[in-house]
Design a protein around this nucleic acid. Sequence first.
DNA 1: TTGGATGAGTTTTACGTATAACGTCCGACG
DNA 2: CGTCGGACGTTATACGTAAAACTCATCCAA
Lengths: 334, 334
Amino acid sequence: MKTQPTSRDVARAAGVSQATVSLVLGDKWRGRVSERTAGLVREAARELGYRPNLAARSLRLGRTRTALLVVPALTNEFFARVYTGAARVAAEHGFGVVLYPSPEGVGPARDPFASASAALDGVIASSMAADALASIRGSDLPLVMLDSDPGESGPAARVNLDIADGIRQVTDHLLGLGHRRFAHLASAVDSWTFQVRGRALDEALAGVPGAEVLTVPAALTVDAARQAAERALTGAGPRPTALICDDDILAAGACKAARRLGLRVPDDVSVAGFDDLALATALEPELTTVQLPAERVGERGMAALLDVLEGREPEAGDLPVSLVVRGSTAPPAR
Amino acid sequence: MKTQPTSRDVARAAGVSQATVSLVLGDKWRGRVSERTAGLVREAARELGYRPNLAARSLRLGRTRTALLVVPALTNEFFARVYTGAARVAAEHGFGVVLYPSPEGVGPARDPFASASAALDGVIASSMAADALASIRGSDLPLVMLDSDPGESGPAARVNLDIADGIRQVTDHLLGLGHRRFAHLASAVDSWTFQVRGRALDEALAGVPGAEVLTVPAALTVDAARQAAERALTGAGPRPTALICDDDILAAGACKAARRLGLRVPDDVSVAGFDDLALATALEPELTTVQLPAERVGERGMAALLDVLEGREPEAGDLPVSLVVRGSTAPPAR
DNA sequence: TTGGATGAGTTTTACGTATAACGTCCGACG
DNA sequence: CGTCGGACGTTATACGTAAAACTCATCCAA
């Protein structure tokens, strides 16, 4: 358990002062230190395996190079991918990303900052983690919101997906195949990203003669979705010929429901998802779904936070999404 | 952007010295400070919204209350769950967990510590992330290994699943159904946890008359698994009647392969998975699989690290796993 | 010859916390 | 009456770093 060498140890080894070490290693020695001395310092640092003490640096600078990412659940592949993207960009800039332990994880957690064991420079939050937002707002930390209502004020920056366009693409695809009777398997979570889906669907169907849609909400699990979809497929009135799902997990439940009812996908009922998770190609038939650039969301989120921290203007504009047509959609049975 | 209050601000507000604040808030004031004064301090701290500066604390104490979790990929649900468990236990003890940005994430990353933006008190590492281990070993930080070879030396503690027993359970289940010709859809990743599966399978089949097994390796993606399974099901010799898969993702690929070849699961071929991911119940039929307590692995890992840090003996013994029989296995066609 | 200007460092200080070492006051005991 | 030991605090210091302020030559122009 030999203790880590400090900048003073390096200084001693190189025969200079601690300040010089700091200057050289901090890359701020343009005209202050000679090339030769700088070389000596770097040599000594490598020799000793010097690694700056980050606690000391943070204390001195008042910044921690750490961002908090608030997501509802990492076990949701989408958010795992968001994290991956954010962490990549962060690492490139010497930043770290810590996660807010989601409600499913730890108990009380009213205060994200109590649980964040690190001091923070900024926060990136998904609008799906609404419960944590109030306390974040109070902290006047730079805040980047992911996929959130552009109408709300507060965040320093916003990274949004063009969700409405995704729904438009799905709907056009299904309308093109000849579908008119839809069910909308909606997430029960009341968050902007899902509200938009509902509104966009209504808009896309408005003006299409004979088009109708039955909305069924469900929790974000396969089983809850299956039950909801069974209700939608067995309710009163003519059976919907296409199920538009807010999420691939819901779509998986929808497929299960269809099978259980003896309906074939896509022959008897078409199913469309949202997200393009790994799940989408694991199912048989593979899901027609809207592909979301999850890593890009994380990357843009972290980049926006860095922009805000350094006084730059964050990049604006929604991220595009694209429909991927696979085997779960087909013309309706005639 | 008002700056955070410091312990000195609290002291001023309470009319005491900074040291007293530190004593009271640090809960080490048994006979040193009067009940009344302690109350005043706590009041003032609440009033000002005082929050200790963690950088300063870390610098002073030389410990950071931060652990590094090294996993191959968070997008793998198993590891996302391991993280969740570890983070929960960590939070209960005022610790944080940072993740090693996996190779798929960031580029160079030879050195986990260069990318860890926080100073660390210890490391929890999955044996599946073998590439990162060398540099960790060099750092003489307390190391807890997850699901790793008990023969190897190095780690301060080890948290293992009883993988061999899981394979035994699957195999017994399938033998009981009457299967004799198996294919083993194995992970191409060369890590202890997968090696054990192979060995345990051989052991379980040794001595069973007529039992044979064909091993086919595949990368951990649905598509790679599908291709491998197609080879296994169409190769020379009699077709295997049961596929034992190292992972549910591989099992999903196996199911797809069967469908493509016009084989029904489980009527024509049985498929068994490993992990019990959400995927397992999303598929149709639902997967028979070995349920692994992923969160428990994370919890035990973090608990073991805390034990090591505080000089206690970490809890020993493998975590039990259990077979979940669902619809993807049945007696072989006769 | 004086007086900048420049190059090459060094000395010093502050960041906020935890804690060891040091004061006081007061009641009680010998 | 002295002094001894709690009870209740305070003062002082160290952790390792970054950077502002300072020193000290040397060189060049006026």
